[in-house]
Design a protein around this nucleic acid. Structure first.
Lengths: 120, 120
DNA sequence: TCTTGACTTAAAGTTAACTTTAAGAGTTAC
DNA sequence: GTAACTCTTAAAGTTAACTTTAAGTCAAGA
């Protein structure tokens, strides 16, 4: 089954201009019909949902492009893609640690405030 | 002891244009000498370092401004400031949880890749 | 005195990741 | 057949949080 850009936009919950933007950024390679209109496949759905996850984990469009170009080159680039993901994992681990520290800092500040308010 | 904007910039590791920008955004109220040049006090150092922490925890300039305006109003606004911090804490907790999920997702993906590569 | 350095301002530029606009083409519903 | 709809493109606009530029003032050192 193929989907028009409008349908694909609805399914993936990504706006059409954003899908066109991703295409321009080489993140998404899009099929065209005889008169030049875009259409998308089931495989494109799987792919764009994975892109969404990469974005959620804070990966930049630039890095996602690097990953995407490798993916479109096929299975031979799997090792390289794994390396990108493992490198990105370090970043995600650091973010997790950062937010743990942030929460601790903020909690400390809140406790100081609370004890000061109780003195009144 | 008072500090010129250049000295204050060095001490706090915040560029002079950024300090002027914070002033324009009402985050920092700055003293001026007789001929209109900015100067900063020890208290300003404490304050700007706290602003830095709020920024690290992902608080927007807009929300920091709200907090700052209350702070400059004095101790009577302490309860309101505490409320801002507690509301922000919810955000920080969500961010922490988000990055925990992200790490789990990414780890799962990496495991899938690894097992596929081992089949070769 | 002259130049160097630090300061002043307002305004324009930067970056990422879109979003909106403008102008037009082809398809479908009545 | 014509109006409405969905698509096409290129280019301009948006937002946050600065950063850079341009043009000028003022004080201190050689």
């Amino acid at each position: 089954m193929n989907y028009s850009i409008g349908q694909f936009s609805t399914i993936t919950n990504i706006s059409s201009p954003t899908l066109r933007y991703y295409e321009k950024e080489q993140i998404l390679v899009t099929n065209r019909d005889a008169i030049g209109r875009r259409f998308y496949t089931e495989e494109d759905i799987t792919w764009i949902l994975f892109i969404k996850k990469l974005k959620d984990t804070g990966m930049s469009i630039k890095d996602i492009r690097e990953y995407a170009i490798l993916r479109y080159q096929g299975d031979s680039t799997m090792q390289q893609r794994l390396e990108i993901l493992e490198k990105h994992k370090v970043f995600v681990m650091e973010e997790k640690a950062k937010w743990e520290r942030n929460l601790q800092n903020l909690d400390d500040k809140i406790e100081i405030y609370k004890s000061r308010l109780n003195l009144h």
